[in-house]
Amino acid sequence: MYDGMIDLFLKGIWETVVMTFLSGFFGFLIGLPLGILLFITRDGQIKENRTVNSIISVAVNVFRAVPFIILIVWMIPFTRMIVGTSIGVAAALVPLSVGAAPFIARMTENSLLEVPSGLIEASRAMGATPLQIVCKVLIPEALPSLVNCITITLITLIGYSTMGGAVGAGGLGQIGYQYGYVGYDLVTMNIVLALLVLLVFIVQIAGNYISKKVDHR
């Protein structure tokens, strides 16, 4: 180990955290509306629409089927178009967000399915518009479950981001890959692993705490 290592790890943690949370954010920006659409267009739901439902469902399945490591490479042209480069944290954000979105969409749909249908019926009986049902009933009622969904997504993204590290995205993944895998430096590799485990624990504990806070059931 040499002197710069501490700085290197700090930078790695920072990059991993930024990649995870930002791609989580963008993932939700795309995935949450998709999940809500998947739910409300289901048969018997407030905006029943088989065509829309099938289209989104197929798209989600296709993107979920692509292995992430391939998605990164496959998306390089698109990534270049958006952020101008295919290397570094900013470039990793694009495939990470796109990889997370369909996953989030399915989990959101599942969370909304847990909301008792009687609540939707009651809201309809009270004259709620579909938008009001989504914003005032579905999302608040599914919130504890949605928070859990965020937790799972973020943890998955920590894993994905290290995979991105292998192809030059930076973060702990890159350190682990370069020093640990290529350079076979066991100490560095294990430190990276320990830091990743720590990160996962922090996210999980925080997620559980928040989920419990918002749960009044």
Binding site: G118, A122, S123, M126, Q132, E141, H216
Partner: peptide, 25 residues
């Protein structure tokens, strides 16, 4: 309308449950 299983919003307290239809309009 009232229901057999009440259908109250679990995420809202009593006050806000009653306020719900008023918020809607």
């Amino acid at each position: 309308m009232i229901f057999q299983h009440f259908n109250l919003l679990a995420s809202r307290n009593v006050f806000n449950n009653i306020a719900f239809p008023l918020e809607l309009n």
